[in-house]
Design a protein around this nucleic acid. Sequence first.
DNA 1: GTAATATCGAGAAATAAATCTCGAAATCAG
DNA 2: CTGATTTCGAGATTTATTTCTCGATATTAC
Lengths: 224, 224
Amino acid sequence: MAMVTAKAGPKLQSVQRLPAYLGILRGMLAEGREFVSTSHLADVLKLPAIVIRKDLQMTGITGTPRVGFDLRFLVAAIEQFLGWNNTKDVFLVGVRGFGEALLTFDGFRTAGMDVVAGFDRQPELFPEGVRGKPVFPIARLGDLARRMHISIAILTVPDADAQETAELLATAGIRAIWDFTTPRLCLPDEIIVQKAGLISELAVLSKRLRERGLTATAEEGHSV
Amino acid sequence: MAMVTAKAGPKLQSVQRLPAYLGILRGMLAEGREFVSTSHLADVLKLPAIVIRKDLQMTGITGTPRVGFDLRFLVAAIEQFLGWNNTKDVFLVGVRGFGEALLTFDGFRTAGMDVVAGFDRQPELFPEGVRGKPVFPIARLGDLARRMHISIAILTVPDADAQETAELLATAGIRAIWDFTTPRLCLPDEIIVQKAGLISELAVLSKRLRERGLTATAEEGHSV
DNA sequence: GTAATATCGAGAAATAAATCTCGAAATCAG
DNA sequence: CTGATTTCGAGATTTATTTCTCGATATTAC
């Protein structure tokens, strides 16, 4: 029974590769180049050209044979596809610990995200904010979210507070949560919850290290 | 031809789920439980039980029907599989910006990782270190890595310095790099490079937000 | 103007991964 | 001791992703 849903497959990995393309392409654009071929991109990124071509198809843009893609259009297409063309203001909830670092990190700008304020259960710990970013008590989040039309939040509270805080975010009108906590949040379906995979990545790294490490550093004679 | 590979498939996603299991299981162990069934885990994690069972098979541990898995053995098996049973000291290179946050983040402890020192091109910016973690000039990295037997590094330098710093790490005997920079590093094959997917995750979130955001505002009639 | 070449784009095949189905085993009830 | 129920584990099915093949098109060379 081929119940094919109308919407195209997500192609998760392709989406994940787009930012890498975008970085290179923006650089080329800054250098004054006008066209780029997937074979050239493939050289730079050490990826098969066909992969890149397939990924770019996702954005809907079309290239010209023998010439490549118009850099300006291509960059614009990717940015539009990801929604990175216009900056979105986001809140960060949970400033103590990891959140403080994230609050000061301005690398999200290139991804169209601007962390405009932090919230914490103990805002008095940051009386002057963090690097110019104000820190408010969580109680004020709902009011400010509505007033500033914020719909995205980064959740970096301690695991124990995660569910409670997440529910508060949902009530405050937040539509998407980038969740750096460990437990699985239970929220209404209309709330987009994107789990941060820092620890998962570490698991993959650990496993690869262990696989290869066994052959490489057997010299360390500690029993397992 | 059925070319059955001897080594088990990597099963990336399964590995990525293991930390979530481990967190729950450690909690149960702390509560004094002795056995756990995948069906119970499934309830807690809101995942299909079969997924969990298949994931656990990877670790090589075996459960008993009608009883479940021995919690102590299971936790030990996952930790061993991931290599999280014994703590590994790691360096963090590039303290300005995002790196400073990671340096202060102690959540990696549960993953058997302890960031013991930071390195930066401008260590004078952190004369007293960061939260007790010392910050050294990059020039001293090789010496200290050898002396302290460090084989893992977290790379959080600016993109422009990424390749150069990475090569320095390789020379210093670092065997695995958790890379938070954008460009693709070119290093000898024996160096394990694990790309951090923060920005890729953001891309996925952005795309999901855009997809749903459009339906939320445009309110298209959903066909059955 | 014609031929050669590099590149794109769509569909198909191959590969890998995730998910499901069913039989087997162990405890508990009677 | 026997049967019912829960849970595990291996193979089969389905799904997703990557890779390949081919035809089309635009530039360049002659």
